[in-house]
Simulated scan of single mutants.
Amino acid sequence: MPTRRRGVYLNLYVVLDLYSRFIVAWMVSHKENAALAQQLFQEAVDRYGIPHGALTLHQDRGSPMIARSYLDLMGELGVTCSHSRPRVSNDNPFSESQFKTSKYQPDYPGRFESIVHARQWYSAYVDWYNLLHHHSGLAGFTPEQVFTGRYREIAEVRQRALDDSFEAHPERFLRGRPKVALPPDSVSINPVQPDDDDPAPYSVVNFPTLSAAGATATKSTLIFNDLSESG
């Protein structure tokens, strides 16, 4: 995150839930190091009560995310770590998309006055993104609605409204009874393609690399990225 001082940048750490796109934790700091990444992720695990061995963490190859001390902590937490391949920009598309969304906000400063300014702006952005942003990848639901499961109740209300409209004016619906669009059943990065000889649909996520001990079949996945325009 560039500041108004030439050559001075701030670092933004973001932990994003893969399925709902919900930002579960974030931090703005002067530095980019493994200790801060450990602090952020440890607090996120504690806050959400993540059980041991239940999580896969996909992240870029920034120096904090490949540091031995950081990977040791992930191993202690039972987190399976996955890293993007070197020099492959689309191995973490959900996180990169979120960063693009933030930079394309009408009030994005471009350059920040101070770290306080950066934290204030991003805090307001996270509130909007999580609670008010009707995400196209989530069938128009917000990340918070999908993260908490509230989208099911909202979808039922929408479906009743569509049913009432269809019963009142069926001639308006050329394709028949309308149905509310829902978020996808599953979300993955680089999914394994099914074998031609295997008729069963695939359900295993193939991450580029696994660099910490943990179960390959997990209940949830987070993606973690840091944003630093200093390279």
Score class of each variant (00 low, 15 high):
Ile115Gly: 13
Ser220Met: 15
Glu96Arg: 12
Ser63Thr: 15
Leu55Phe: 08
His133Asn: 12
Asn33Ser: 11
Pro208Ser: 03
Glu144Thr: 10
Leu18Glu: 04
Ala25Ile: 07
Leu132Asn: 12
Met65Gln: 11
Asn225Met: 08
Asn206Arg: 15
Gln105Val: 10
Val14Trp: 04
Ala181Phe: 02
Asp195Thr: 03
Trp121Thr: 04
Gln145Tyr: 08
Phe207Asn: 13
Gly231Cys: 01
Tyr48Thr: 07
Leu222Ile: 11
Ser123His: 09
Thr101Tyr: 06
Trp128Gln: 09
Ser165Pro: 00
Arg5Ile: 10
Ser82Pro: 06
Gly78Pro: 13
Ala34Asp: 14
Ala217Gln: 13
Pro208Thr: 04
Met74Val: 07
Asp127Gln: 11
Arg150Gln: 01
Phe224Tyr: 15
Lys219Trp: 06
Pro184Lys: 10
Ala139Phe: 02
Ser102Ile: 13
Val126Trp: 08
Ser102Asp: 03
Asp127Val: 14
Lys103Asn: 11
Ser95Phe: 13
Val116Leu: 01
Ser97Glu: 11
Tyr70Met: 08
Gly214Pro: 13
Leu10Asp: 05
Val204Gly: 05
Ser114Val: 12
His30Cys: 04
Phe207Ser: 02
Asp164His: 12
Glu43Lys: 14
Ala67Phe: 11
Pro51Phe: 01
Gly7Cys: 06
Arg68Ser: 13
Tyr19Ser: 05
Asp107Thr: 14
Arg85Phe: 09
Arg4Leu: 01
Val79Pro: 00
Asn90Asp: 10
Leu18Thr: 02
Ile23Glu: 07
Thr80Ser: 13
Lys179Pro: 03
Ala35Ser: 11
Trp121Glu: 00
Pro170Ile: 08
Glu156Lys: 12
Ala155Trp: 05
Phe207Ala: 09
Gln38Gly: 09
Thr101Glu: 09
Ser20Arg: 05
Arg177Val: 05
Cys81Ala: 12
Phe112Arg: 08
Phe147Gln: 08
Val15Thr: 01
Asp17His: 11
Phe94Gln: 09
Asn225Leu: 08
Gly53Tyr: 01
Val88Lys: 15
Ala37Cys: 07
Arg150Leu: 02
Thr3Cys: 00
Leu71Asp: 04
Val192Ser: 10
Ala34Thr: 06
Gly214Arg: 03
Ser211Tyr: 01
Glu76Thr: 06
Ile189Ala: 00
Tyr108Glu: 04
Ser97His: 13
Gly176Asn: 03
Ala168Asn: 13
Gln42Asn: 11
Gln159Asn: 14
